[in-house]
Amino acid sequence: MTPSFHSLKIRDCRRETDDTVSIAFDVPADLAERYRFIQGQYLTLKAVIGGEEVRRSYSICSGINDGELRVAVKKVPGGLFSTHANDGLTPGDVIDVMTPMGRFHVPLAPDQARTYLAFAAGSGITPIMSILKTALAEEPKSRFVLIYGNRTVSSIIFREELEDLKNRYLGRLVIHHVLSREPEEAGLLSGRIGAGLVKELCGTLVDPATVDAAFLCGPQPMVEEVRAALAEVGTPPDRIHLELFGAPTGAKPAARRPDPVDSPTDAAAVTVLLDGKRKEFALPYDGDSILEAAHRHGADLPYSCKSGVCCTCRAKLREGKVAMAENYSLEPWEVEAGYILTCQSRPLTERVVVDFDAT
């Protein structure tokens, strides 16, 4: 089903750290099915701030059986939406929330004894919390190893909840905190999460070759370094799943590229399929991305980051060719199957058809 926005009332705002708030939403009964989520998915929130429409994606931190829909928002210096969420939102406020999206998960297997491994930094813990709580509750024979990096003890998001979970799942949940600015804190690792730590911990906590699923969430340099280190010590690459928070290093809206254009015209005829409707418009080959042009012509396409990270604007290329400038979220099989990020794509042929209704 095509993702769509609905106005939801905020049920609860809970202060997790000095700069992070978690927000739970009331979901009306008639929308319950639309907001049923898979562990590891995210919500895109939309608000008008200072006269400007702002959209941001935040991961769901609830387990699938927690009975609530909750996201966590960490305040970013200069962040328009994160500042608004931390300082301005209160219970009873109404905000536009897109239906859940994202593929940062693996299917549950209640009859299996799996080994999960996760590396998170800062607010990267948010989707990991959803995955961790769900896996431990739904797979009673599985175990979970979490390595969680922060600057200080006070900046550990969900610290008390993680301790409660460790006590509830004794022997099945192992948590190691890594602090970069409190090296003397008793019982906690110091430094940062990187290749060296991966190799050290994998030698004592878990056999990397037997890991059924590894989840990495944090800034791009950490995620890429940990992914490479895990592969080096024997974790099969197809079992390593990653998600970046924020924009990757150097990420930006699709830049104009000198790809050869297979057309005698100056503009492509673009057709966008969404909710069974068609929107057609001309798009110069050196002009906007397909997403930007479609919005300019009145099509309300789903999007959030516009940097190739969130995958909200994913669609299937039904006809023609495009140049995709960046891709931080589509899996290789999706690219092979013809899926594109419309925020990063420009036409290369005289006719291009993209389908947002394709599953």
Results as ranks from 00 to 15, higher is better:
209 A>S: 11
210 T>R: 13
210 T>V: 07
210 T>F: 03
212 D>S: 10
213 A>G: 12
214 A>P: 06
214 A>D: 09
216 L>Q: 01
219 P>R: 13
219 P>Y: 04
220 Q>S: 10
222 M>P: 01
222 M>N: 00
224 E>K: 12
229 A>H: 06
229 A>K: 04
232 E>K: 06
235 T>E: 04
237 P>N: 08
238 D>R: 11
239 R>K: 15
239 R>D: 07
239 R>G: 09
239 R>E: 07
240 I>M: 06
242 L>H: 07
242 L>Q: 06
244 L>D: 01
244 L>R: 09
245 F>L: 02
246 G>I: 02
246 G>E: 02
249 T>W: 02
250 G>Y: 03
250 G>M: 04
251 A>M: 04
253 P>S: 07
254 A>D: 05
255 A>R: 14
260 P>K: 07
262 D>K: 11
262 D>Q: 10
262 D>G: 00
263 S>D: 11
263 S>Q: 07
264 P>D: 07
265 T>Q: 10
267 A>C: 11
271 T>F: 04
274 L>R: 13
275 D>C: 08
275 D>R: 14
276 G>C: 06
278 R>C: 03
279 K>M: 10
279 K>D: 12
280 E>F: 00
282 A>Q: 13
282 A>W: 00
283 L>M: 10
285 Y>R: 03
290 I>D: 09
291 L>N: 12
293 A>L: 07
295 H>E: 15
296 R>C: 03
